[in-house]
Amino acid sequence: MAREIGPVILDLKNLSLSFGGVKALTDVSFDVCEHEIRAIIGPNGAGKSSMLNVINGVYRPQEGEIVLRGGHFTNMTPYRAAIAGFARTFQNIALFKGMSVLDNIMTGRNLKMKCSLLQQAFWFGPARREELAHRARVEEIIDFLEIQHIRKTPVGRLPYGLQKRVDLGRALAMEPRILLLDEPMAGMNVEEKQDMSRFILDVNDQFGTTIVLIEHDMGVVMDLSDRVVVLDYGRKIGDGTPDEVRANPEVIKAYLGASH
């Protein structure tokens, strides 16, 4: 592969998160290097989704901090995370159901569109130019994800696998530095999984996007990722290359042995 793994871009330090009595994360630390694909694995309820939610400010951790390219964030918010270059997809698809595929992905351009409300109301001139320029970029994403045939379809009418693809498209439209993917292949058939794996590798390869990925399918994880973090009951129990993690006795006991 052409890409080269860079220095640490995202450093997560001693993060703890609890909901009332439930400890979702306990003192978890790990880092993510530029251009790498970093997987988070673990049984159901291990705290993987919570981890992503902490990274991009949907949840506020009780302890710990997030260091992004040297900048310290103790209270990350989704808006700050978006500005800082994070994009993400959701475990339970969170598309805008009333909108078409095209509009969903266009919404991902929102931070880059600068025309004022008044300019937009009058349409002709700057607003129209801006809209068309971003439309062209979005069409590239639509081509890349091979969803040209459904661009005008309301997302609610799409089958699950395609919805996941649109979810990825909306995240890509943000042109993120770091892409957080929460189980992008859950519930897909083998063919759909292969397509999705290919898109993830291509994004990483062509745009150098750093990717943090939650995935259950061990085969996929071993193929795609450079390094893997293993969570269990909110604690980190393993961290390393896929081979190291696979050989880690604690991981075998907690995760690979458990049914999930």
């Binding site: 989704p78 969170a94 805008f96 909108m99 919404t107």
Partner: peptide, 20 residues
């Protein structure tokens, strides 16, 4: 763009916040 922002908030406000 503003119409898409409104509809995004209407349809799924958490996802809307996450895309800024």
């Amino acid at each position: 763009a503003i119409g898409r922002q409104w509809m995004a908030i209407r349809d799924m406000d958490v996802a809307a916040e996450v895309i800024g």
